[in-house]
Design a protein around this nucleic acid. Structure first.
Lengths: 340, 340
DNA sequence: TTGTAGGCGTTATCAC
DNA sequence: GTGATAACGCCTACAA
């Protein structure tokens, strides 16, 4: 059995409660006893038991992370390791640990979260995605359990603290960028329409076209998974149209890479034959041939702010609801050119 | 305050201990009371408190994960999300949760692990890497705390359960593959020499050359970080040699991509001017131009087996030490050709 | 300033 | 079969 507070108390010749107070650095303990107790602690190599502490405090110093269901998206899209890093640093700074949800199906994930929450395993939860209808989110809301969301909530955006980019504006901007280059036939390749980020980006695209007085063209709008395969599928469809687009807004770098590869196989040149802008600015964007013009959404910061704000909310439940918008910026590379 | 075992006991009109036994499905409880208690549980929406249970059982059902120090490697190399998925599925199957170490510096990570272990937060630990000298590993060994390692332990390989590929053999095979294509000037670009995987791969490479009766050439062996930048640096050095290699063994796909990009800028063609084989067979390998011949090391399985075996060890401390070798296979694509 | 005692929610060891 | 009761290790009134 490990060293407990009692062992320390015995050695330092004080009561266990005194040791506890020294750990908490309670000002009402004299420096002398503090010193004595601390010596005993180091002598015995004492480390407080988190579990016991959690039980007594009703707080665990652990944040739960909910990953999106699609495991292949998680393991292939560089978005996730990067948010994880942001979350990790944000949590570490405040001495919080990170626990991940496991489970593949939506049902398994939901059950896992219920256990985390009701089982008292975590003090708060970060949702790493935002879906149109989400059982987990509804559950957390109903229980009034502290959580923050990365992405924009589909409903109740005023009641849920969330960290997001202004995806609507970002997409409007890149679409305008293409318009300014003279393109009028602009396609949109987005992810799952159940993801709010897809919806927002689509709206931004539509808004830009609308303001330019261009008509929307349903055939130009395609939705696939946020993966390279998704990109391949999408571009195949688009290029079969009578009048294929001369420019594309693609909602994810990985998809854009699929598009690029497929176009290459088709003998179509980027950007000469078709211009492309995409999102996330992950390493791939820089490495592809040609390098992709991409919107940097500062993924690290999305995670970092999420952790920071969740912890604030845990510490002070009265903390007002917040909406944190992480700035984006367009990184121009070589995948766009003026229409000829 | 949440529903506790006592509330259930009151409603079902039994003692708390009986409720506890029903949860554990103790056979000595009559079916009738079990039913009664279970009804009370669902009526109240009872969920057991993990923390209290952990304290009573001295076991948490949580596995701790130790990430390698370099955060940029973690967030850029697709290796990690994939092992994570393997670990996650392995843990979920046995109802274990996953907790990640946070912290950037080696010191912070070490302290984090000590807290996890001594704080009783986790029942076992997975080391996601193997280093030549590793403080965390030494600590776990000394305390005789259950852990498994992904990779080959530098020392004490017979005393530490680990999950690994046969990296020596794999590298020997790919080097022979290049030799069979007629290459005699073969370079090696590896990662940090403190990582055991680098050492093993280097040895395999040297062995193959030795058996072929070729002399080792120090200039042909370069070590950099497992990142794309690493690949760039390395190839720059190699191409400045009087007699640059005509083939390369690169210890990581991401590095290989850096090599590819840099060669492209130099106007050197792969595979016509120089052949390349690399490791991990991540998505990138397939997507690069040309697609890379790469060794598939089954990353998912590395993680999955690690979780499985760690849990076995936690459940039965007498479980013998194991060495699990996950099979690899060479996936041939278009980055190698016969020397001309 | 420090000690005593009860409680956090479970499990496990006794009894009956 | 089931019910008290004492842990598990720590925190925090309340006393002293």
């Amino acid at each position: 059995m490990a060293i407990t507070i009692k062992d320390v108390a015995r050695l330092a010749d004080v009561a266990p409660s005194t040791v506890s107070r020294v750990i908490a650095n309670n000002p009402r303990i004299s420096e002398k006893t503090k010193k004595k107790v601390r010596e005993a602690m180091t002598e015995l190599g004492y480390h407080p038991n988190f579990i016991a502490r959690s039980l007594a405090n009703q707080s665990t110093q652990v944040l739960g992370l909910v990953m999106p269901g699609s495991t292949s998206t998680f393991s292939q899209n560089p978005f996730f390791p990067t948010v994880l890093r942001g979350l990790s640093e944000g949590a570490h700074k405040e001495q919080y640990a990170l626990q991940m949800s496991t489970g593949q199906t939506e049902e398994e994930i939901y059950e896992g979260i219920v256990q985390m929450v009701q089982g008292g395993r975590v003090d708060g939860i970060v949702l790493l995605y935002s879906r149109v209808e989400d059982r987990v989110m509804n559950y957390l809301r109903e229980r009034d359990f502290p959580f923050v969301m990365i992405g924009k909530p589909y409903k109740y955006a005023e009641e849920i603290t969330h960290v997001d980019n202004d995806n609507f504006r970002a997409t409007k901007e890149v679409t305008e960028h293409l318009l300014n280059l003279g393109h009028t036939c602009i396609g949109f390749i987005g992810g799952d329409l159940n993801l709010v980020v897809t919806v927002e980006r689509l709206l931004g695209y539509e808004k830009a076209l609308g303001e330019a007085g261009l008509e929307l063209h349903d055939d130009y709008i395609i939705h696939e998974e946020f993966l390279r395969e998704g990109g391949r599928e999408a571009i195949n469809e688009l290029m079969q149209l009578e009048e294929p687009p001369t420019a594309l807004v693609v909602a994810d770098d990985l998809m854009a890479l699929g598009v690029l590869n497929t176009l290459d196989e088709m003998g179509i040149t980027v950007p000469d034959d078709i211009s492309i802008v995409s999102f996330n600015n992950v390493l791939l964007a820089e490495m592809s041939r040609p390098p992709l013009t991409s919107v940097d959404i500062n993924i690290f910061k999305l995670g970092n702010e999420a952790a920071k704000n969740l912890i604030q909310k845990i510490k002070d439940p009265l903390e007002p609801v917040k909406r944190i918008i992480v700035p984006h910026c367009i990184v121009e590379r070589q995948s766009c050119t003026r229409k000829r």
